[in-house]
Design a protein around this nucleic acid. Structure first.
Lengths: 326, 326
DNA sequence: TTGAAAGCGCTAACAA
DNA sequence: TTGTTAGCGCTTTCAA
């Protein structure tokens, strides 16, 4: 392995000068700088990141802890965090908690001394534990608000209001909300927003039982809908998986979309933009959420501006699955 | 920040003893060991990973470079790599190359001094560049074979043979292969395997034009199929996205699955296991591929066993979308 | 603009 | 079993 000292000797300068020539070029005479750079390149030299980290106290790494990569919600966030780091040669140190609080805690303590900051995506630990971590290094949460910590929140409730407004504008007055996943905090927010929008417009919103986020659930829901809720003219599904299920189940039962019933979803994580009919849905800016979280980490690495809370807005994308009721 | 020296002083031992008590407990008297552990815990002490890495030469990190996280093929591989590391407290340092050779090269040089080894997933760089990297640290490729380097290959061609055998067993003799993505090396392997299986059985395999991996493409293909290839009784799609498109497009045109036509796909990356009818497909063990790659990295960190090439087998999962032709 | 020297926090000979 | 000592490869005062 070639070390900085080797380069310095070969270039006939001190290690300090060699170090400066490569890391703080403006501190070195142009001639020396170029000479050192040339020698270093010729020897195939690369500064050792670990040693730099030890002396400078900065690793250039940001830790990202996600519950899983199997849910398509999370990978785009990781991609987003990576983006602002790229320019500066930084990287993402990834941790997958598997939805386990224990595992999450272990990951936080493991990563603490390896990263400059931490992005915790939908963390499951308690507020206190998260605040404790934030005392030791910059911590930003995504899709979860912890009092006193900076956070990035995807503003789905306001998106749901847009979705409802769209359906109401079309003339729907009997709408079903197909909620889930069972027990989810986010779902209660969505449901609340939908109920309020319906009430404000004097429309009826039937809240169906929460279902798991699977196509299967959509198919089952389609059957239920047909048997018991024939009078609704539109369905708002909390997930694109469920919407996909509805899209597959309803035609088989003789209900055409959107002629007989309108369908919309509050995320676009599956391919529902490309089905036929295309699914009306909220576009969720997950990469942007990741980018924002990364920038908040970088900000709070500097001197202490007070914790910011950033809300990233969703966008309503209207496609063929919604139309005026007959 | 609490350092090891602080713990040592508080515990009344030398830093070496403190170090051993925490890192190599078997080298220290039980009493001392527990005392040090207690003191360390009380002070909230954690060994500094960067400093350890500098002295030991091992970081505990494995770099994983993927082309993207947007394609559902890749996240499970990353998850798989992480798994064997977890027990030893290791982590994944992630790089996303965006399918760019330049970016991939930069990532390799960036990560080199931060990780113990590198897993390159479907790398785009030339063989020579990859072999050069392998001279400096352990490198394992996934879904790409480089002569001289260890690799993990998902054995889709043999899976395609199973799929073909399944269709032929059912009695299909006029089968369409819907290939893609356009220009893909993997696709040529699949197509070759399918053609050979058909020829061996005296069946006819019509190779349709490659399409991109989107539901849309499936829908378009469905229409094409109806207009020009009405005589086929089964379709083998190279991707589950395309299968999903067929599943959505065919019924609308009056063709029932599987009564009028059988459908199968050579991956199960979407939710086609949960559609109705369920889609017959190859189950692709991506997490296992990741785990295997990680173990190969760990192996080649030790003394040099010669590069291994591991082939992970796919599994045929038969569901309702395939049946005997009428 | 450059160099000498100290040290980041830890581990690992070597000695005792 | 424990302590002393010398680095790991780099950056950064401080002085010249």
């Amino acid at each position: 392995m070639v070390r900085l000292a080797d380069v310095a000797r070969a270039a006939g300068v001190s290690t300090s000068t060699a170090s400066r020539a490569l890391s703080r070029p403006e501190m070195v005479a142009p001639k020396t700088r170029e000479h050192v750079a040339r020698v270093a390149a010729a020897m195939g030299f690369q500064l050792n990141a670990t040693a730099r980290a030890l002396t400078t106290g900065r690793t250039g790494l940001v830790g990202v802890i996600v519950p899983t990569l199997a849910n398509p919600f999370f990978p785009p966030i990781v991609t987003g965090v990576q983006q602002p780091l790229t320019e500066a040669g930084g990287n993402v140190l990834l941790g997958v908690s598997d939805h386990s609080e224990d595992r999450e805690r272990d990951l936080v303590t493991q990563l603490e001394s390896r990263v400059d900051g931490l992005v915790l995506v939908a963390p499951v630990s308690g507020d206190a534990a998260l605040r404790a971590a934030a005392e030791r290094l910059p911590v930003v949460t995504v899709d979860r608000a912890v009092p006193g910590l900076p956070a990035v929140l995807v503003d789905i409730p306001s998106g749901v209001r847009q979705l409802m407004a769209h359906l109401l504008d079309l003339g729907h007055r009997r709408i079903a909300y197909l909620g889930g996943p069972p027990g989810s905090w986010m779902d209660r927010q969505r449901e609340k927003a939908a109920l309020k929008a319906a009430a404000d417009a004097g429309a009826r919103l039937t809240v169906l039982d929460p279902v798991p986020p699977q196509i299967d659930a959509g198919l089952a829901a389609a059957e239920h809908l047909l048997r018991h809720e024939a009078e609704v003219t539109a369905v708002l599904a909390y997930s694109s998986y469920v919407l996909l299920g509805l899209l597959m189940g309803l035609p088989g039962a003789g209900l055409r979309v959107p002629e007989d019933i309108s369908l919309a979803a509050s995320d676009d994580l599956t391919v529902i933009g490309m089905t036929r009919p295309g699914g009306t849905a909220l576009q969720v800016p997950l990469e942007e959420a990741g980018r924002t979280a990364c920038r908040l980490v970088q900000e709070s690495s500097g001197n202490g501006t007070r914790p910011r809370r950033v809300r990233v807005p969703t966008t309503l994308v209207v496609r063929e699955s919604t139309a005026a009721p007959r």
